Amino acid sequence: MQKKIYVAGMFDDDSANKVGAAVSAVAGVTNCTANAQKAQVLVDFDESVAGIEGAINSAIEANGVQVLG
């Protein structure tokens, strides 16, 4: 499944890279692209993994970035 997540607080490429790395480390995530200019994170993941969407949101917020939806 692919999901586009809009975020607030990701202001530059450095913060986008940190968010992308954190989300990519979540078990079940197959691809992640974080874009500071668009204020979004595009994630491909295995939706059969229990609690994966919550884990993805937690990984984003652990980097000081707010998940908007």
Rank of each mutant, 00 (worst) to 15 (best):
V26A: 02
E53Q: 14
V67W: 07
A36K: 13
Q37L: 12
N63L: 03
I52A: 01
A50W: 08
A62E: 11
F45G: 01
A8M: 09
A55M: 14
S15H: 11
A59F: 09
I5C: 07
G9L: 07
I60K: 08
V29H: 09
G20R: 13
V67C: 06
D12K: 08
Q2M: 11
L68Q: 14
V41Y: 06
D46A: 00
G54Q: 15
V43I: 03
Q2W: 05
L42V: 14
V41I: 11
N17I: 03
V49F: 00
G54W: 05
F45I: 01
C32W: 04
V41M: 05
A8I: 01
F11W: 10
V67L: 03
G64E: 06
N31A: 15
Q66H: 12
N57Y: 14
N63F: 07
V65G: 09
A22C: 06
K18N: 11
V65D: 06
N31R: 14
A59Q: 10
D46G: 00
L68F: 02
N31W: 09
V7N: 07
C32S: 13
A62K: 14
K18V: 05
V41G: 04
L68H: 02
G9H: 08
S58Q: 15
V29E: 04
N57F: 12
G54K: 15
N31E: 14
G28C: 08
Q37W: 00
V29M: 04
V29F: 07
D13P: 12
Y6P: 00
V29G: 03
A16D: 05
G9E: 05
A8Q: 14
F45M: 12
E53C: 01
N17K: 15
N35H: 06
L42K: 10
N57W: 10
E53Y: 11
D13R: 10
Q66E: 15
Y6I: 07
I56K: 08
A22M: 08
K3N: 02
V67H: 04
A50Y: 12
I56D: 01
D44T: 10
A59H: 10
A62P: 11
G51N: 05
D14N: 13
L68S: 08
L68K: 15
A16K: 09
Q40A: 14
